[in-house]
Design a protein around this nucleic acid. Structure first.
Lengths: 196, 196
DNA sequence: GATTGAACATAACAGTGTTATATTAAAGAA
DNA sequence: TTCTTTAATATAACACTGTTATGTTCAATC
């Protein structure tokens, strides 16, 4: 990666961290990087390319948050630790979270490369979910259960960003969310179809 | 409401239904309504006012979807019917759904009036959730459980809009979602804290 | 009828992502 | 090393965005 490309990406990442996607105009990125706007087109094929890089960063942050030492933990505890990591990431990197879940601009469509990273992240969740299921569980069953967990945790993050979140006086949104997910994991473990 | 205001709102609604928020520029709305752009500022205080009207429409659609005859249904069945209505609405009115959950433009912030309608919709969900709980359940317990259901169902809708949704070969996303929610409702009903 | 405020048309403003044009720099071939 | 081709670059222009400014017309009130 050449110097200008690196400078552009660094400038974009910094602006994004400070001000989210609203701070990311091609002129402000170019200015901060000390180059002209054309660099964004030659190196990144336009603003979409910048957004793709940030999207990929976002899912990499998701994967990192769920990457930890698993020894001596039960399957449920591994999942819950992953869920906690996911919530921590969502809170610490709100701009990235909003970008990867399309809470910014529905005109942005991730590239195939960016989508592949999203799928990889889901693959990680799938592996953790498989720990909850019998060894001979089908791929469809694993996917179904992984999606279930993801829908639940993402739902909590998304609603926290919502206008109605202010109705809740809850001291700790994510503790509440974790407890609900924990109950659901128990329900998954108790399902007849999920027995060895 | 005067004629121009009505024409503008009608034009905006039609454009929105066809092309989502991307179709809603003040010039295209004004042109379709047969007025100049200034009407959007005098009648709606700008584009935000149009978005507020559509946001309010969106939550009204949510409330309608969950409004049905409840006689002869158990508390769980009432909730599941509401969940089905919610999914049907989310599918039939994707533009509205994306708008009310911020999947469009994070520069749009709902007005106090629009937020009040969102809160009203949550109040409806709260009433249905209360049916699952003992009569003496506290407001906090009701809110917690209502949020749980909402997080789950919204999570499924949101992930259906996501790039990773294409991984799933599932014939019926929402049937799968409903089943997961049903399991969770059972888990809620089984909780010691939720017993009469 | 005169005054005031609202509604309205149009132009201009400041911003957006992108493309066009010309120039310079870098890489590859002879 | 020199020449040719390609890539990178600066700048201006384009078409679009939401909004404000300016002036005119309309409607309501006195």
């Amino acid at each position: 990666m050449n110097i200008a490309k690196r400078k552009i990406l660094k400038a974009a990442s910094e602006l994004f961290l400070e001000g989210g996607i609203a701070a990311l105009s091609v002129r402000s990125i170019a200015k901060k990087a000390g180059v002209s706007t054309i660099g964004i087109y030659s190196h990144f094929q336009g603003k979409e390319g910048i957004l793709d890089e940030l999207y990929i960063q976002g899912f990499e942050l998701v994967m990192q948050a769920m990457d930890f030492e698993r020894k001596a933990l039960s399957a449920k505890d591994i999942m819950l630790k992953g869920v906690r990591g996911y919530f921590a990431m969502a809170e610490a990197h709100e701009g990235h979270y909003r970008l990867i879940f399309g809470e910014n601009d529905n005109r942005y469509t991730p590239s195939e490369e960016a989508k592949a990273v999203a799928e990889k992240a889901f693959g990680q969740l799938l592996k953790v979910t498989a720990l909850l299921l019998p060894d001979n569980a089908s791929m469809a069953l694993k996917q179904k259960n992984a999606l279930e967990i993801w829908a639940f945790v993402h739902g909590y993050v998304s609603l926290k960003h919502h206008a109605v979140a202010s109705i809740f006086e809850t001291p700790d949104w994510y503790a509440m969310a974790e407890e609900a997910v924990s109950v659901h994991i128990d329900a998954i473990l108790a399902k007849p179809e999920n027995q060895p």
